[in-house]
Protein backbone atom coordinates (compact mmCIF):
# COMPACT_ATOMS: atom_id res chain seq x y z
CA UNK A 1 0.00 0.00 0.00
CA UNK A 2 1.10 3.55 -0.70
CA UNK A 3 -0.06 6.34 1.56
CA UNK A 4 0.59 9.86 0.40
CA UNK A 5 -0.36 12.57 2.79
CA UNK A 6 -0.39 16.32 2.19
CA UNK A 7 2.60 16.16 -0.10
CA UNK A 8 4.04 19.47 -1.30
CA UNK A 9 7.16 20.55 -3.11
CA UNK A 10 8.53 24.06 -3.56
CA UNK A 11 11.30 24.94 -5.96
CA UNK A 12 12.33 28.24 -4.41
CA UNK A 13 9.19 30.35 -5.02
CA UNK A 14 7.54 27.94 -7.41
CA UNK A 15 5.03 25.49 -5.96
CA UNK A 16 5.39 22.37 -8.12
CA UNK A 17 3.25 20.02 -6.03
CA UNK A 18 0.54 21.30 -3.77
CA UNK A 19 -0.96 19.34 -0.90
CA UNK A 20 -1.40 15.99 -2.63
CA UNK A 21 -3.08 13.16 -0.70
CA UNK A 22 -4.09 9.69 -1.88
CA UNK A 23 -3.69 6.02 -1.06
CA UNK A 24 -3.13 3.15 -3.44
CA UNK A 25 -3.98 -0.50 -2.78
CA UNK A 26 -2.30 -3.56 -4.32
CA UNK A 27 -3.92 -4.50 -7.61
CA UNK A 28 -4.46 -0.92 -8.65
CA UNK A 29 -2.90 0.60 -11.75
CA UNK A 30 -2.79 4.35 -11.31
CA UNK A 31 -2.42 6.73 -14.21
CA UNK A 32 -1.01 10.19 -13.57
CA UNK A 33 -2.44 12.56 -16.13
CA UNK A 34 -1.79 16.25 -16.47
CA UNK A 35 -0.39 18.92 -18.75
CA UNK A 36 3.35 19.54 -19.09
CA UNK A 37 4.75 20.92 -15.88
CA UNK A 38 1.78 19.76 -13.82
CA UNK A 39 4.01 18.09 -11.25
CA UNK A 40 3.68 14.41 -12.22
CA UNK A 41 7.39 13.70 -12.36
CA UNK A 42 8.07 15.75 -9.26
CA UNK A 43 5.49 13.70 -7.38
CA UNK A 44 7.11 10.47 -8.58
CA UNK A 45 10.53 11.71 -7.52
CA UNK A 46 9.16 12.21 -4.03
CA UNK A 47 7.38 8.84 -3.98
CA UNK A 48 10.64 7.10 -4.81
CA UNK A 49 12.73 8.99 -2.29
CA UNK A 50 14.82 10.92 -4.78
CA UNK A 51 13.47 14.32 -3.82
CA UNK A 52 12.68 15.29 -0.27
CA UNK A 53 9.20 16.82 0.03
CA UNK A 54 8.85 20.36 1.32
CA UNK A 55 5.93 19.11 3.38
CA UNK A 56 3.91 15.95 3.82
CA UNK A 57 4.83 12.28 3.90
CA UNK A 58 4.98 9.16 1.76
CA UNK A 59 4.68 5.62 3.06
CA UNK A 60 5.44 2.61 0.90
CA UNK A 61 4.11 -0.61 2.42
CA UNK A 62 4.35 0.99 5.82
CA UNK A 63 7.88 2.34 5.39
CA UNK A 64 8.25 6.08 5.55
CA UNK A 65 10.34 7.10 2.55
CA UNK A 66 12.06 9.85 4.52
CA UNK A 67 12.92 7.80 7.59
CA UNK A 68 13.24 4.28 6.17
CA UNK A 69 14.37 5.07 2.68
CA UNK A 70 16.34 1.89 2.03
CA UNK A 71 13.59 -0.48 3.12
CA UNK A 72 10.99 1.43 1.12
CA UNK A 73 13.19 1.47 -1.96
CA UNK A 74 13.74 -2.28 -1.83
CA UNK A 75 10.12 -2.88 -2.78
CA UNK A 76 10.23 -0.19 -5.46
CA UNK A 77 10.98 -0.40 -9.15
CA UNK A 78 11.37 2.99 -10.78
CA UNK A 79 11.72 4.22 -14.32
CA UNK A 80 12.74 7.88 -14.05
CA UNK A 81 11.63 10.37 -16.68
CA UNK A 82 13.73 9.95 -19.82
CA UNK A 83 15.00 6.54 -18.66
CA UNK A 84 18.51 7.57 -17.60
CA UNK A 85 21.00 4.68 -17.79
CA UNK A 86 24.80 4.58 -17.67
CA UNK A 87 25.52 5.36 -21.29
CA UNK A 88 29.04 4.03 -21.52
CA UNK A 89 28.00 0.57 -20.32
CA UNK A 90 26.71 -2.16 -22.56
CA UNK A 91 23.12 -3.25 -22.02
CA UNK A 92 24.27 -6.54 -20.55
CA UNK A 93 26.79 -4.97 -18.16
CA UNK A 94 24.22 -2.43 -17.05
CA UNK A 95 21.60 -5.07 -16.31
CA UNK A 96 24.17 -7.19 -14.48
CA UNK A 97 25.08 -4.15 -12.40
CA UNK A 98 21.44 -3.56 -11.49
CA UNK A 99 21.00 -7.25 -10.68
CA UNK A 100 23.97 -7.21 -8.34
CA UNK A 101 22.71 -4.09 -6.62
CA UNK A 102 19.37 -5.85 -6.16
CA UNK A 103 21.24 -8.57 -4.33
CA UNK A 104 21.40 -11.36 -6.92
CA UNK A 105 24.53 -13.30 -7.75
CA UNK A 106 25.68 -16.42 -9.52
CA UNK A 107 23.04 -18.42 -11.28
CA UNK A 108 20.13 -16.35 -10.05
CA UNK A 109 21.76 -13.19 -11.38
CA UNK A 110 22.15 -14.75 -14.81
CA UNK A 111 18.54 -15.94 -14.77
CA UNK A 112 17.11 -12.61 -13.67
CA UNK A 113 19.03 -10.74 -16.33
CA UNK A 114 18.10 -13.23 -19.00
CA UNK A 115 14.44 -13.02 -18.02
CA UNK A 116 14.24 -9.23 -18.46
CA UNK A 117 16.22 -9.41 -21.67
CA UNK A 118 13.61 -11.80 -23.04
CA UNK A 119 10.72 -9.88 -21.54
CA UNK A 120 11.72 -6.61 -23.20
CA UNK A 121 13.19 -8.19 -26.32
CA UNK A 122 16.66 -6.79 -25.77
CA UNK A 123 18.52 -9.81 -27.12
CA UNK A 124 19.59 -8.00 -30.26
CA UNK A 125 21.33 -5.14 -28.44
CA UNK A 126 22.85 -6.67 -25.30
CA UNK A 127 26.40 -6.07 -26.49
CA UNK A 128 25.77 -2.52 -27.58
CA UNK A 129 26.64 0.45 -25.38
CA UNK A 130 23.55 2.24 -24.13
CA UNK A 131 24.65 5.57 -25.60
CA UNK A 132 24.23 4.14 -29.08
CA UNK A 133 20.72 2.74 -28.59
CA UNK A 134 17.64 4.20 -30.22
CA UNK A 135 15.22 6.02 -27.94
CA UNK A 136 12.80 3.10 -27.76
CA UNK A 137 15.50 0.58 -26.89
CA UNK A 138 16.87 2.93 -24.27
CA UNK A 139 13.41 3.10 -22.73
CA UNK A 140 13.17 -0.68 -22.76
CA UNK A 141 16.48 -0.99 -20.93
CA UNK A 142 15.08 1.40 -18.33
CA UNK A 143 11.99 -0.75 -17.99
CA UNK A 144 14.05 -3.93 -17.75
CA UNK A 145 16.00 -2.38 -14.93
CA UNK A 146 12.82 -1.38 -13.11
CA UNK A 147 11.11 -4.78 -13.22
CA UNK A 148 14.10 -7.04 -12.67
CA UNK A 149 13.40 -7.72 -8.99
CA UNK A 150 9.64 -8.03 -9.52
CA UNK A 151 8.95 -5.14 -7.19
CA UNK A 152 5.74 -4.82 -5.23
CA UNK A 153 5.50 -1.20 -6.29
CA UNK A 154 6.31 -0.10 -9.81
CA UNK A 155 6.58 3.59 -10.63
CA UNK A 156 7.03 4.36 -14.31
CA UNK A 157 7.40 7.88 -15.65
CA UNK A 158 6.13 7.83 -19.25
CA UNK A 159 6.97 4.16 -19.86
CA UNK A 160 5.75 3.99 -23.44
CA UNK A 161 7.16 7.30 -24.66
CA UNK A 162 9.16 6.65 -27.80
CA UNK A 163 8.08 3.04 -28.28
CA UNK A 164 6.75 1.74 -31.57
CA UNK A 165 3.14 0.47 -31.62
CA UNK A 166 4.21 -3.16 -31.18
CA UNK A 167 6.37 -2.33 -28.23
CA UNK A 168 3.68 -0.12 -26.73
CA UNK A 169 1.35 -3.07 -26.83
CA UNK A 170 4.03 -5.33 -25.40
CA UNK A 171 4.80 -2.99 -22.53
CA UNK A 172 1.12 -2.59 -21.72
CA UNK A 173 0.75 -6.36 -21.60
CA UNK A 174 3.78 -6.50 -19.35
CA UNK A 175 2.34 -3.90 -17.00
CA UNK A 176 -0.99 -5.71 -16.93
CA UNK A 177 0.72 -8.99 -16.13
CA UNK A 178 2.75 -7.36 -13.37
CA UNK A 179 -0.20 -5.47 -11.94
CA UNK A 180 -1.73 -8.45 -10.20
CA UNK A 181 -1.37 -8.01 -6.43
CA UNK A 182 1.05 -5.17 -7.07
CA UNK A 183 0.87 -1.43 -7.28
CA UNK A 184 1.68 0.25 -10.56
CA UNK A 185 1.81 4.00 -11.05
CA UNK A 186 2.44 5.33 -14.53
CA UNK A 187 2.42 8.81 -15.96
CA UNK A 188 1.46 9.31 -19.55
CA UNK A 189 0.33 11.76 -22.17
CA UNK A 190 -1.32 9.01 -24.17
CA UNK A 191 -4.95 9.10 -23.12
CA UNK A 192 -5.93 5.79 -24.71
CA UNK A 193 -3.31 4.18 -22.50
CA UNK A 194 -5.27 5.24 -19.47
CA UNK A 195 -8.44 3.48 -20.63
CA UNK A 196 -6.43 0.46 -21.76
CA UNK A 197 -4.40 0.05 -18.61
CA UNK A 198 -5.41 1.99 -15.56
CA UNK A 199 -7.94 1.20 -12.90
CA UNK A 200 -7.77 4.73 -11.58
CA UNK A 201 -6.78 8.14 -12.87
CA UNK A 202 -5.21 10.95 -10.90
CA UNK A 203 -5.50 14.11 -12.92
CA UNK A 204 -2.99 16.72 -11.80
CA UNK A 205 -2.77 20.34 -12.91
CA UNK A 206 -0.65 23.11 -11.41
CA UNK A 207 0.53 20.66 -8.77
CA UNK A 208 -2.95 19.98 -7.49
CA UNK A 209 -5.04 16.85 -7.63
CA UNK A 210 -8.12 17.77 -9.65
CA UNK A 211 -9.74 14.41 -10.22
CA UNK A 212 -9.29 11.00 -8.63
CA UNK A 213 -11.60 8.43 -10.22
CA UNK A 214 -11.83 5.49 -12.62
CA UNK A 215 -11.29 6.02 -16.35
CA UNK A 216 -14.95 5.11 -16.80
CA UNK A 217 -16.09 7.85 -14.44
CA UNK A 218 -13.78 10.26 -16.18
CA UNK A 219 -15.37 9.38 -19.52
CA UNK A 220 -18.79 10.07 -18.06
CA UNK A 221 -17.73 13.69 -17.64
CA UNK A 222 -17.40 13.99 -21.37
CA UNK A 223 -20.10 15.79 -23.24
CA UNK A 224 -19.80 12.97 -25.76
CA UNK A 225 -20.66 10.35 -23.17
CA UNK A 226 -23.67 8.48 -24.62
CA UNK A 227 -23.53 10.67 -27.73
CA UNK A 228 -24.81 9.02 -30.89
CA UNK A 229 -23.02 9.41 -34.18
CA UNK A 230 -24.79 8.66 -37.46
CA UNK A 231 -23.35 8.33 -40.89
CA UNK A 232 -25.56 8.25 -43.90
CA UNK A 233 -24.94 8.80 -47.57
CA UNK A 234 -28.28 10.58 -47.83
CA UNK A 235 -29.06 13.85 -46.13
CA UNK A 236 -30.88 13.34 -42.84
CA UNK A 237 -33.50 15.58 -41.34
CA UNK A 238 -31.39 17.47 -38.85
CA UNK A 239 -34.28 19.40 -37.36
CA UNK A 240 -36.09 16.17 -36.49
CA UNK A 241 -32.96 14.77 -34.84
CA UNK A 242 -32.43 17.94 -32.84
CA UNK A 243 -36.03 17.86 -31.65
CA UNK A 244 -35.69 14.39 -30.12
CA UNK A 245 -36.10 14.30 -26.33
CA UNK A 246 -32.77 14.49 -24.48
CA UNK A 247 -30.78 15.94 -27.37
CA UNK A 248 -28.81 18.95 -26.33
CA UNK A 249 -27.11 19.78 -29.59
CA UNK A 250 -26.06 18.41 -32.93
CA UNK A 251 -22.60 18.56 -34.43
CA UNK A 252 -21.85 17.97 -38.06
CA UNK A 253 -18.47 16.54 -38.83
CA UNK A 254 -17.23 18.52 -41.80
CA UNK A 255 -14.74 15.78 -42.79
CA UNK A 256 -17.17 12.96 -43.57
CA UNK A 257 -20.57 14.56 -43.05
CA UNK A 258 -21.45 12.37 -40.07
CA UNK A 259 -23.77 13.77 -37.41
CA UNK A 260 -23.17 13.60 -33.69
CA UNK A 261 -26.06 14.06 -31.28
CA UNK A 262 -24.92 15.26 -27.89
CA UNK A 263 -27.19 14.31 -25.01
CA UNK A 264 -28.35 16.44 -22.13
CA UNK A 265 -26.61 15.30 -18.96
CA UNK A 266 -27.86 11.85 -17.99
CA UNK A 267 -30.01 11.36 -21.08
CA UNK A 268 -29.84 8.15 -23.13
CA UNK A 269 -30.28 8.82 -26.82
CA UNK A 270 -29.75 5.58 -28.67
CA UNK A 271 -33.30 4.15 -28.32
CA UNK A 272 -35.04 7.34 -29.47
CA UNK A 273 -32.63 7.88 -32.34
CA UNK A 274 -33.05 4.30 -33.41
CA UNK A 275 -36.83 4.62 -33.23
CA UNK A 276 -36.74 7.74 -35.43
CA UNK A 277 -34.62 5.96 -38.02
CA UNK A 278 -37.07 3.06 -38.10
CA UNK A 279 -40.05 5.38 -38.32
CA UNK A 280 -38.63 7.43 -41.21
CA UNK A 281 -37.11 4.45 -42.92
CA UNK A 282 -33.69 6.16 -43.27
CA UNK A 283 -30.74 4.38 -44.78
CA UNK A 284 -28.02 4.78 -42.18
CA UNK A 285 -24.65 3.19 -42.91
CA UNK A 286 -23.16 3.58 -39.47
CA UNK A 287 -24.47 4.25 -36.03
CA UNK A 288 -22.30 4.39 -32.94
CA UNK A 289 -22.76 5.20 -29.30
CA UNK A 290 -19.77 6.94 -27.80
CA UNK A 291 -18.46 6.23 -24.33
CA UNK A 292 -16.85 9.67 -24.17
CA UNK A 293 -13.73 11.47 -25.29
CA UNK A 294 -10.90 11.71 -22.81
CA UNK A 295 -9.03 14.41 -24.68
CA UNK A 296 -12.04 16.69 -24.43
CA UNK A 297 -12.42 16.00 -20.69
CA UNK A 298 -8.69 16.51 -20.22
CA UNK A 299 -8.77 19.87 -21.98
CA UNK A 300 -11.79 21.09 -20.12
CA UNK A 301 -10.55 20.06 -16.69
CA UNK A 302 -7.00 21.29 -17.06
CA UNK A 303 -7.95 24.64 -18.51
CA UNK A 304 -9.79 25.45 -15.33
CA UNK A 305 -13.34 25.48 -16.69
CA UNK A 306 -15.86 23.79 -14.45
CA UNK A 307 -16.70 20.21 -15.34
Amino acid sequence: MIEVSKLSKHFSEHLAVNNLSFTVQPGEVIGFLGPNGAGKSTTMKMLTGFLAPSAGSVKIHGFDIAKQRIRAQRVLGYLPEGAPCYGEMTVLDFLLFIGKVRGYRGKELQERVKRVIDLLELGRVIGQSIDTLSKGFNRRVGLAQAVMHEPKVLILDEPTDGLDPNQKHQVRQLIKALAKDRIVIISTHILEEVSALCTRVLLIAHGELIVDETPHQLLQRSKYHQAVTLYSENALDQAALKALPGVQSLEENSRDGSLTLIPEPGAVLFPVVNALIQQRGWQVQEIAVESGRLDEVFRRLTRGESA
Binding site: T48, F50, Q73, P84, C85, G87, V101
Partner: peptide, 14 residues
Protein backbone atom coordinates in the same frame (compact mmCIF):
# COMPACT_ATOMS: atom_id res chain seq x y z
CA UNK B 1 24.38 15.73 -15.77
CA UNK B 2 23.10 12.51 -17.32
CA UNK B 3 20.34 12.10 -14.74
CA UNK B 4 21.57 8.68 -13.66
CA UNK B 5 21.84 10.08 -10.15
CA UNK B 6 18.07 9.63 -9.96
CA UNK B 7 18.49 5.96 -10.77
CA UNK B 8 21.37 5.48 -8.36
CA UNK B 9 19.63 7.28 -5.52
CA UNK B 10 16.50 5.14 -5.84
CA UNK B 11 18.21 1.74 -5.93
CA UNK B 12 18.15 1.19 -2.17
CA UNK B 13 21.86 1.87 -1.72
CA UNK B 14 23.13 3.75 1.32
Amino acid sequence: KSGTIELLMTLAIR
